[in-house]
Simulated assay, not measured.
Amino acid sequence: MNDRAVNFLKELVETPSPSGFEQPVQRVMRRELEPVADEVRTDVMGNVIARIGAASDGALRVMLAGHCDEIGFMVRYIDDKGFIYFAPIGGVDAHLVPGQRVHVHTAAGPVLGVVGKKPIHLMEAKDRETVVKLTSQFIDLGCVDAEAARNLVAVGDPVTFAVGFEPLQGALAASRGFDDKMGAFIVAEVLRAVRRRGVPPVEVFGVSTVQEEVGLRGATTSTFGIDPHIGIAVDVGFASDVPGVEMKEIGEFKVGGGPIISRGANIHPALFELLVRTAREEDIPCQIMGAPRGTGTDANAMQLSRAGVAAALVQVPLRYMHSPVEVLSLDDIDATIRLLTGVLFRLDNRFPIIPD
C-alpha cells in the first residue's frame, strides 16, 4: 500500500464517526471520490453515493457498500460534580472501557476525558471479578463542577476512544474504527482502480453507508434508492488466528491470508463462484467462510431490498473487533481491492441473476 493510500486510511479511521454522527468522515469520502466518480451525492440518511457509468446503456447496476460508522458512546447525564455518564453507540464491550482516554466531540471541537475507575486497592475481592456496567461508568473531564462540564459538553454529544492508526510489524496495523471505515476505504480505492483501468462493463455505485452498527440502516435506504442488480458488502470478519478464538465455531481465518469470501443463504451462488474464480485467476489468496444464515452485515440489507438483490460479502480478517486495538493486514486490504476490481470487469448482462 503506497503512502497516499495509507494516509487516506489513517485519516478515515482517526476521523470520528459514531453511528448517527458520520458526516465528518463522509466529508473525507466525498473529497476522495469526487475526482474519480462521474457523480457523487449524499442522500437524506447521510450515505455518500459515488457512481461510475458503464460502457453501454442498460448495463447491470452493481453496488459496493462499506459502512463508515464506528462504535462509540453518547453523553446522557452530567452530575453535580461534573462527571459524565454515557450510553454505548453500537456493541461496546464494558470490560474494555474503564481506564481509557476518550474524546467528547462537541460543537467547539473534541474535549479529552478519561473513563475513571476505582483503584484496585479500594475494591472488595468480589468486586475485582465483576464487570462494571456501562451505566455506572463515567468520564472525568477534569472539571470542578457541573457548570464547568456543561460549558464544555452537551447531552447527546458523541464520544470515541482517543486512539488512532499505528503500524505494527510487517504489514499489520492497529487502530480503532477499522470496523468498518476500512470497508469504506476499499470501496473508494476500488472506484479509483476502476477509473484507472477504463470504462467498466457495469454501472458501478460505491456507497459509504451509515448506521450499520445500529441496524444496517444506511444500507437499507441506499439500496432501495439505487435499486442495484448486484450488491457486494465489504466489511471486517473475525480472525481466528489468536489465542482463545475457537476455529470449530467460526472457521479458520488468518490475518494476512487474504479476503474472506462468504458462502451461504445471504450469498448469491453465482456471485460467490465469480468471486472465487476471480481470486484464482488473479492469483489473489482468499479464505472461505460458511455463513448458514443472514450475516448481520450490509449484505443482508442489500439482499432483501425491494424484490431482492444478488448479494455477496467480502471481509478482511480482523483481530480484536469492537475494541480500541483492532488489528488487520494492509496486504489483505490491497488483495480485496484487486479482487473487487477484477470482479467488476468480469460482470456483464450475461451474469445469471436468476439462479438455475
Results as ranks from 00 to 15, higher is better:
residue 70 E to A: 12
residue 166 E to R: 13
residue 209 T to L: 04
residue 317 P to I: 06
residue 314 V to D: 02
residue 232 I to K: 00
residue 353 I to Y: 08
residue 45 M to S: 10
residue 4 R to D: 14
residue 306 R to K: 14
residue 188 A to G: 14
residue 29 M to I: 15
residue 158 P to D: 03
residue 130 T to K: 15
residue 174 A to E: 13
residue 258 G to P: 05
residue 87 A to V: 09
residue 274 L to K: 08
residue 253 F to Y: 15
residue 207 V to W: 01
residue 196 R to S: 13
residue 126 K to H: 14
residue 70 E to M: 13
residue 20 G to V: 11
residue 254 K to M: 13
residue 128 R to G: 00
residue 353 I to K: 11
residue 323 S to K: 03
residue 77 Y to G: 05
residue 253 F to I: 08
residue 216 L to S: 06
residue 14 E to L: 10
residue 29 M to K: 06
residue 212 E to S: 04
residue 81 K to R: 15
residue 229 H to G: 11
residue 18 P to Q: 01
residue 138 F to Q: 12
residue 332 D to P: 09
residue 92 V to G: 06
residue 39 E to Q: 13
residue 150 R to P: 09
residue 196 R to F: 01
residue 191 L to H: 08
residue 272 F to T: 01
residue 261 I to D: 07
residue 217 R to G: 09
residue 350 R to D: 10
residue 348 D to L: 03
residue 87 A to P: 02
residue 75 V to H: 10
residue 152 L to C: 08
residue 112 L to Q: 12
residue 238 F to Y: 08
residue 101 R to Y: 06
residue 172 L to A: 12
residue 270 A to T: 01
residue 29 M to N: 11
residue 74 M to E: 10
residue 251 G to P: 07
residue 254 K to E: 12
residue 122 L to Y: 12
residue 65 A to K: 00
residue 332 D to L: 13
residue 144 V to Q: 11
